[in-house]
Design a protein around this nucleic acid. Sequence first.
RNA 1: GUGGGCGUAGCUCAAUGGUCAGAGUACUAGACUGUGGCUCUAGGUGUUGGGGGUUCGAGUCCCCUCGCCCACCCCA
Length: 420
Amino acid sequence: MSSDGRYKALKGMQDILPPDIYIWQKVENAAREIFSSYGFKEIRPPVVESTDIFVRSIGENTDIVEKEMYTFNDKAERSITLRPEGTASVVRCYVENHLYNLPSPQKYYYSGPMFRYERPQSGRFRQFYQIGVESFGSPHPAMDADIISMLRHFLLRLGLKEVKFQVNSIGCERCRPDYKESLLAFFSDRLGNLCPDCRRRYGINPLRILDCKVERCIEMRADAPRITDSLCHDCRTHFDRLLSLLGILKVEYIVNPDMVRGLDYYTRTTFEVTSESLGSQNAVAAGGRYDRLVKEFGGPETPAIGFAVGMERIVELLKKSVRHEYPAPNLFIANIGDPAGKKSILIADELRNKGLWIELGDNETSLKSQMRRADKLSAEYVFIIGDDEINSGKLKWKRLSDSTNGEISLSEISSFFINK
RNA sequence: GUGGGCGUAGCUCAAUGGUCAGAGUACUAGACUGUGGCUCUAGGUGUUGGGGGUUCGAGUCCCCUCGCCCACCCCA
């Protein structure tokens, strides 16, 4: 409640706690595993960069740059920005470290927090986490297919099947301007019928009219020219070969010519994975090709492609669709009396060194309350040690799931878990 | 930035403008003095988000403010 303390996390920023954290770790582990098997290596660029890095790459007139960046001046009055996305940093890193001198293609993944100053809503936060991948050096549609299929495997590994793959090609610097022109021409005498937002879009980014949600605009654009019909020969060939490879890989996708991305740097292939069950912010992952960005950052002409997945949204889907098992102690040691307490601490020490999760009961409290705690922790086994056990040299064990129990000699403890 | 909804115990929620703001759940302990779950009993917390106003009287009505949620914009 808001009356609780005076100190609260900032708007749009949240603590990630157990048990949720186990789902996060599951996602991170799956990413590491799958991405490694495709030859992607982790890199960790800083979270803060010089502001112009984002302005240059994302685009001066994008919403991200115009109103969503966390931008500050540092003590030397340099403008710095908390990264709103990962690709710009990775490209800067690629160029700065001359990674283009390494054998091509170079493939990297990263994960961590991103920051955008937006009004929070379902699935949208001011600090949010992405895992992303970037592949540098390959212009071939096979790389596009590889990346999309890797994303699919990653989602499948997590057990997420109810997602939609949408792909599109937005052309290149040769064919897109022509398309933009024909789009402007098409809408020019229909402007009055578009919603106010779209009238604004007409001037700033007419492609955005294509994914407007207003019914009237959807009708209005039914006969609008399609980017996929306006691609130049090379872009067309690239796209066709990608689609054919996706077919061979049995990726179920839909071509969505209305899919538009909010960052300026994309060329040719763009794609997005969405889920019905997420509410209005339904993109789980998105990416595309950006063949000119490395050059713009001062590197050699280097085609590249990547994507980013939204951690919070993946985790949300997992919470809804998959049953989770949370880790529990292997053993709880209930102990009564001073000699038993000392013995218990030794046993715990020894078993923890074998990598087991051991919880030690509070010697000062009753056996009953120690048992209750073992139960609440969902410990697999309980050891019971008191004066009797110290004297006889045998302790009692119990498996909580079915109450089976027995005795074991204190000298054989280290082998207790071997056959379990 | 724009619009809508909601703020009562740790959590989920009750309380016609009228006594001292309650219940379930969770937590801790006991009943069972060395064996968890089930049952019963006991225990504690609220500046009713905050501030102001109307009223004999405000959790309830009005205004302001803060926070959260949802949607638009946009995006992961």
